[in-house]
Design a protein around this nucleic acid. Sequence first.
DNA 1: TTTGTTTTGTACTAAACGGTCTAGAAAGGA
DNA 2: TCCTTTCTAGACCGTTTAGTACAAAACAAA
Lengths: 190, 190
Amino acid sequence: MPRKLEFDRNEAVAAATETFWEKGYGATSLDDLTERLGIGRASLYNAFGDKRALLLEALDEYSATARRGLNEALASNVSGKIAITSMLERVACCDGTAVRGCMCVTVGIEINGADSEIQRTIINNIERMEDAFAALIVRGQADGSVKPEIDAPATANALAALVVGIHSMKRIGVAPSGLQRAVAAQLALL
Amino acid sequence: MPRKLEFDRNEAVAAATETFWEKGYGATSLDDLTERLGIGRASLYNAFGDKRALLLEALDEYSATARRGLNEALASNVSGKIAITSMLERVACCDGTAVRGCMCVTVGIEINGADSEIQRTIINNIERMEDAFAALIVRGQADGSVKPEIDAPATANALAALVVGIHSMKRIGVAPSGLQRAVAAQLALL
DNA sequence: TTTGTTTTGTACTAAACGGTCTAGAAAGGA
DNA sequence: TCCTTTCTAGACCGTTTAGTACAAAACAAA
């Protein structure tokens, strides 16, 4: 019966994700969003509620994409070590927009626990990554590509911290070569 | 001849450091600063120039403190491995205000390369930490506390990334237990 | 076409922002 | 005591902020 939305909702969320990813939450203004999404303020408020709700939708979309990436790594037929290698090397990539780092890390650091719903979403993503690393270490120990004596869940924590650190350092602007050497060194330790 | 400053400049910079450390740069308002420093706007502008200049002074003070910490670790008489252990364990500490993470990481991520002077200061701190780690690894290899086959500078990059990651995760709100396990696992790999 | 519902563009609000200005207070030299 | 210089408090400035009000436009059912 009524009028339809003139824009594609998924496309709008994707555009919002890009914007928050690039600038963080607080530094993204409504004008930034309306310009990037190509819609007016009223449309944005009508469709999403407010800026924070739009961020939550963007985080959900980002999380879903991240989860797909982890599932691909887990589903692949390569050895545990190789799967971990490709994950870490993808993180250390600094081409194009990758220097923005990780949206969850950027927003999570900015939020500083002041919004528990956002915080929970972000921590959840990190924990999922830790689980994936732990599973791949176990797989690597089974197929002989990872040293048998290492503690899988604890080392998974260390790998996750390394990943978060590399994302942070990319955004800070640390030279890419050092990040790639860090990944290579860490892989050599496994 | 003329009137003297009514406040202690060093104390004011220290208070500004606390404020920026806690809230980041953009989210710290002039009102936050004047309240925390206990001085008026005019005094702040008279003594420091503007908000950004005050941040730079705060970063300098923070950097000096960090450098002293690194020099202490380098000057201590313990083995390389033990010196690295105490550095990492101090980073993983989540007591009190330590959950704020590292001021350089927080501000550096927020700035996102938009201010090259601030960026340079922060990257400099990270590189100094990498140098310290590299020296301690070499020392550890000399005294037998660190495996001889590892690549010292590259592994120093990895340790620095781990440290930055732990600082980020502390601020994001990840459970401290996981961070401590990450440190323990990383130490076991050296 | 008429009616009812929703979206849209635009103008607006109230608050907060960084920064400046001004009036006056404080302090040393003459 | 006066004069000069600097510092301080607080009002003030223009801009930007997130969010809202409202009327016009678009669509679908009748």
